[in-house]
Design a protein around this nucleic acid. Structure first.
Length: 480
DNA sequence: ATAGGGATATTG
DNA sequence: CAATATCCCTAT
């Protein structure tokens, strides 16, 4: 599967009300691009959601999740929103004051959270967005409470109205909202059902030119609201079956158009231009991978589990966790670590409860879904090691099915969609005379065929060129 | 990493 | 539309 497509699919399923187990299995199987901030953030958000739904109490690791999100935001120049600051503070407080009754543990928590995390943030090189007055205020109180029993009581009282769950929920909702819909959903809302059918079917297109051609990309409020609403089977054919009325003319939808390179624009201008191969390519990609995805989404538990596990049983175990250190891994490492991918089911995840439980034994009956096609720039991701250890069919499990039911989320895709690079082909860039000269001297000095050496030697001049480009250019220059 | 063939974009 | 330039994919 193409890396972009994989990313779209991931973005999509992260927003689906799938339970953790299913999601986890899917994540295990999909190639995860390691370089996409948006995606990472979605994962973290989803994990936070999962955590706050799971148990009554807030786990301390939410602090870590929030910190990572903040860092991602920072790198993208996104300012930390108030709800996030508040959520972080609330979690920190909650995870500390819960130990107020045990001096030892309380002190440990203070050291861990306030003298550890918070302290680090405060003296970080950059201004960490999570640090705010509220946090500092609490820090002082909580520190004082370590030594002073009377302050201790104050803290206890003050923390009663903390409302962690609410705070976190508010933030998560806001974050999803500003992230906008997943690409697949955006596209689904962009193209009418008829168009989709035509393109996905045989592609009889020309006869529709004209008419309602000035339409913009639209995602209807209705669709957005139902996005994560309730238990699944509703929106099975998300990408293809949008009731025309809901998506197009009638809705007071929101534009998603201000995205420079994003081909959503082209998709939305579908009626105006002749279909470019590029669009066809996108839609073909969507067709195939969405079809695969639908098999999972429409009937999540049985279907997805079966798919995911069948796939898993065909693969070697891949327990790389991209989240923890993020950058350390790439496709090569994964492949190197698992030379037996696809051949040795017994090597796979031997210690994973879910795998053992549900493996149906005949991995060869099922054709290898292309979902698992691996990509050189991707690695696998372990959603959460704790979920798998939970007993199957427990109350916990059942409750997680309703994961997203409470959050009704109004998505306004006003925010720019972080452009996935659909155009797999770079823009054509004519060679300048300088470049040509440089190439000539490069070949003369460093030897023809040593394209990489030449490229490195004149990196500033060969801007945006690859060694293959040099090679091709030389081929052109020396023809005849 | 490189070469070669093929796809796509650009030019005339 | 053909010729050419650039870019991409794949086998070696």
């Amino acid at each position: 599967m193409d890396a972009d497509v994989a990313r779209w699919v991931l973005e999509y399923i992260l927003r689906q009300p799938l339970d953790d187990r299913t999601l986890n299995n899917l994540l295990r199987v999909l190639p995860i691009p390691n370089d996409n901030a948006r995606l990472k953030k979605s994962m973290l958000l989803r994990r936070i959601e999962s955590e706050i739904i799971k148990k009554g109490s807030i786990p301390e690791k939410l602090l870590g999740f929030l910190e990572r999100i903040e860092e991602l935001d920072y790198q993208e120049g996104i300012e930390t929103c108030d709800s996030m600051k508040h959520a972080y503070c609330s979690v920190a407080v909650d995870c500390t004051v819960r130990f107020l009754d045990e001096r030892e543990e309380y002190f440990d928590a203070v050291k861990r959270i306030w003298r550890g995390r918070v302290w680090k943030m405060e003296r970080s090189e950059r201004a960490v967005g999570l640090v705010c007055d509220e946090l500092r205020g609490w820090r002082d109180d909580i520190e004082a409470a370590v030594w002073d029993p009377s302050v201790c009581e104050n803290v206890r009282v003050k923390s009663r109205g903390n409302g962690v769950l609410e705070a976190v929920r508010v933030y998560v909702d806001e974050a999803w909202k500003s992230a906008g819909p997943s690409f697949l959903e955006a596209v689904a809302g962009t193209v009418s059902e008829d168009t989709m059918r035509e393109v996905l079917g045989q592609g009889g297109i020309g006869d529709r030119v004209g008419g309602d051609s000035t339409r913009d990309s639209i995602v209807s409020e209705k669709d957005k609201e139902s996005r994560r609403g309730g238990v699944l089977p509703r929106q099975k054919h998300v990408a293809m079956k949008h009731p025309r009325g809901a998506t197009i003319g009638t809705s007071r939808g929101v534009k998603i158009t201000d995205t420079e390179e994003l081909d959503l624009r082209k998709l939305s201008n579908y009626y105006e231009c002749l279909p470019s191969p590029e669009i066809n390519e996108v839609q073909e990609a969507l067709r195939t991978s969405v079809a695969e995805l639908q098999a999972v989404v429409k009937d999540p538990l049985p279907e997805a589990l079966r798919l995911a596990e069948n796939v898993m049983s065909c693969m070697g175990g891949q327990n790389m966790n991209q989240e923890s250190s993020g950058r350390g891994q790439n496709g090569k490492n994964v492949d190197a670590a698992n030379p037996s991918v696809g051949t040795s089911p017994e090597a796979a995840l031997a210690n994973e409860a879910n795998c053992d439980n549900q493996r149906s034994g005949h991995q060869n009956d099922v054709p290898k879904p292309s979902l698992m096609a691996r990509n050189g720039t991707a690695c696998t991701f372990e959603w959460d090691d704790s979920v798998d250890s939970l007993p199957e069919g427990s109350a916990d499990h059942a409750s997680r099915l309703h994961l997203s039911t409470p959050n009704r989320r109004l998505v306004s895709p006003l925010k720019k969609y972080q452009t996935p690079k659909i155009s797999r082909r770079r823009k054509v860039k004519k060679w300048s005379p300088l470049e040509e000269d440089t190439l000539r001297t490069g070949v003369q000095k460093l030897g023809m065929g040593n394209w990489k050496v030449i490229l490195n030697a004149y990196r500033e001049i060969f801007e945006e060129r690859t060694e293959v480009d040099l090679k091709d250019k030389w081929r052109n220059m020396t023809r005849y």
